[in-house]
Simulated scan of single mutants.
Amino acid sequence: MRYCALADLQLAIPPQTLIWLSNDDEAATAMNQAVIEESVRQAQELVDAHLRGRYSLPLDPVPSTVKDMTVNLARHWLYARRPEGRDFPEAVTRTYKAALQMLEAIRDARLTLGVPTGQAAPEPGEMKVRARTRHFGSDLLVRY
């Protein structure tokens, strides 16, 4: 399941700009679907990399915050692939950095997605704990 669709990108990027960003030919009149799909795939992989271990992946249903972050990451990737080396629009850079900060906050458990079924995925393997023997038992501690 994709975290964002072409329609979501079309809401964030004007149609002519999306055609320009997805094609290497300046005379192109249609979007290059393969390039757009690659931008969404890379954005989704980045989101999954941050959420792995905290949530069962892929997310279903996709929270709107994840969709918005994926759109912003995909949009940044589309601008970054342009060979002209022009400066990014300030809004693209700002939303990209904000998406990365949100992903880091979710990863570090400072934010939550609010997914009803979003429970931490169990880690594979077993956990072993080692502790030293107690020098003071509860009978001695009760006397204090």
Rank of each mutant, 00 (worst) to 15 (best):
R41W: 06
Y79M: 03
S56Q: 12
G85W: 04
E84C: 03
E104F: 07
A109C: 11
Y55M: 04
T29Q: 03
G114F: 04
L9K: 02
V40C: 06
A91G: 04
L59I: 06
N72K: 07
V92R: 04
V129M: 08
A74M: 00
A105Q: 13
D48Y: 01
A120L: 10
L113G: 03
Q119V: 13
A27P: 02
A98V: 05
K128V: 12
E84Y: 06
D139S: 14
L57H: 06
P83G: 14
R94G: 09
L46W: 07
G137A: 15
T29M: 00
A91I: 12
V115W: 12
V35N: 03
G53Q: 02
A28T: 04
R41P: 03
L78C: 03
R2K: 14
P58C: 06
G118M: 04
S64C: 05
L100E: 05
E38K: 14
M1H: 05
Q44W: 01
R41F: 08
Q10S: 13
L18Q: 03
H76P: 03
F136P: 02
Q10R: 15
P15D: 06
V92D: 04
D139Q: 12
A49V: 04
T95E: 11
S56W: 04
P83I: 11
E26R: 14
N23Q: 09
R107I: 09
L46A: 12
H135Y: 11
R81V: 10
E126S: 14
L140I: 10
Y144L: 09
T17S: 13
R81D: 09
N23V: 02
L100D: 04
A43W: 01
E123D: 10
L78E: 00
P58K: 03
T112D: 15
H50N: 04
R130H: 12
G118R: 01
K97V: 14
V66A: 03
I36Q: 00
Y96C: 14
P116S: 04
L11C: 12
E104Q: 08
L100W: 02
L78N: 00
D108F: 06
L73E: 01
Y144E: 14
L103Q: 02
K97R: 11
A109E: 15
D48E: 14
K67T: 15
V92H: 02
A7H: 05
R54H: 08
V115N: 11
S22L: 03
L141W: 07
A131I: 13
P14A: 11
